[in-house]
């Protein structure tokens, strides 16, 4: 038998309360595998507030602070400061929030922490809606999607908020996107984030079969297809926003195929798919152009 492809240690155990096929749960397991036991978590209101389990039980063998919806980043800042002031400089503090707690209600606190460049890792597991409260739209919900507050008669017309650009505007040392379908990429990014001082932001695409009205076994596949269809590019922004690296080493797949297995897009018509495909391509082109542009500025990077 070959050596294991990821660390064997499990800091997250069975018996947790996640739905079948939950991407957010896989993501947590991956992250903890590279972070190790010297890690403290901050979790705001989100599915993970429930997944962890019921008092007095927890599925995660780490110190965790559950906090109010909008406070993940700053509680992490406070926690880090508190730990340092009592002599613990080793513990990695990771805020772990959903897209609602990041793109929407927690944006302010996150912006504050990022601007201060507090020494935390902030991971947003992006399942593209408020799942914990029963699948309401968030500003991360993609255009075209059904949610309980964007019914098919009035599905979401607004594009997903570009959170990565927002974070890049804070000039923090490290920003990355990831996908649950690429655990090794994600783990490498978390590992890198751990080695950097300051605010690190990682946004991992984490399918929610329940909220996307999709068979749970398609969880990883949709996470993969999102990347290969260019819907969710994998990228890294380093050097305080100066350097952008976009992953392109894949066989491109169809946006439509990615969307079609998900019930949340089932109502869309061909013309609407056409438009979405165009938008995806346009955004991809812009992203790649930006990567080139940044690389071409002489003297910017040594």
């Amino acid at each position: 038998m070959k050596p294991a492809v990821m660390p064997l240690e499990e800091l997250m155990g069975s018996g947790h309360l996640a739905c079948q096929g939950c991407g957010a749960t896989q993501a947590m397991r991956f992250a903890l595998k590279v972070l190790g036991p010297e890690t403290a978590l901050v979790i705001p209101a989100c599915c993970w507030a429930v997944i962890d389990g019921t008092f007095p039980h927890s599925a995660v063998n780490l110190p965790i602070y559950h906090t109010a919806f909008e406070t993940a980043a700053v509680v992490a800042s406070g926690l880090k400061a508190g730990l340092e002031m009592r002599g613990d400089t080793e513990t990695t503090v990771m805020a772990w929030a959903g897209d609602g707690g990041t793109f929407d209600i927690g944006l302010q606190a996150l912006s504050g922490a990022a601007e201060r460049n507090d020494d935390i890792i902030y991971v947003c597991y992006d399942n593209e809606a408020y799942m914990n409260t029963g699948i309401q739209r968030s500003s991360s919900t993609p255009v075209g999607a059904w949610t309980t507050t964007t019914p098919v008669t009035n599905y979401k017309r607004e594009p997903k908020k570009n959170m990565i650009d927002i974070m890049a505007a804070h000039s923090i040392p490290y920003i990355a996107t990831a996908s649950t379908a690429y655990p090794h990429d994600f783990m490498a990014k978390v590992k890198k984030a751990k080695s950097i001082r300051g605010t690190k932001y990682i946004q991992i695409f984490a399918p929610c079969p329940t909220g996307w009205k999709m068979a749970p076994e398609l969880s990883v596949k949709s996470a993969r297809d999102a990347v290969t269809s260019k819907v969710y590019p994998l990228l890294e922004i380093t050097e305080h926003g100066q350097k952008l690296k976009v992953w392109k080493d894949f066989e491109p797949t169809s946006v439509r195929d990615y969307m079609k297995v998900q019930g949340r897009f089932r109502h869309l018509k061909d013309e609407e798919f056409d438009q979405i495909e165009k938008d995806v391509e346009m955004k991809w082109q812009r992203l790649v152009a930006k990567e080139k542009m940044l690389a071409s500025i002489p003297g910017l990077i040594e």
Binding site: G13, G15, L17, G53, T54, P56, H57, S58, A59
Partner: peptide, 9 residues
Amino acid sequence: MTLSTMMWN
């Protein structure tokens, strides 16, 4: 505050 795991579940 947790005192045990979720393995009972």
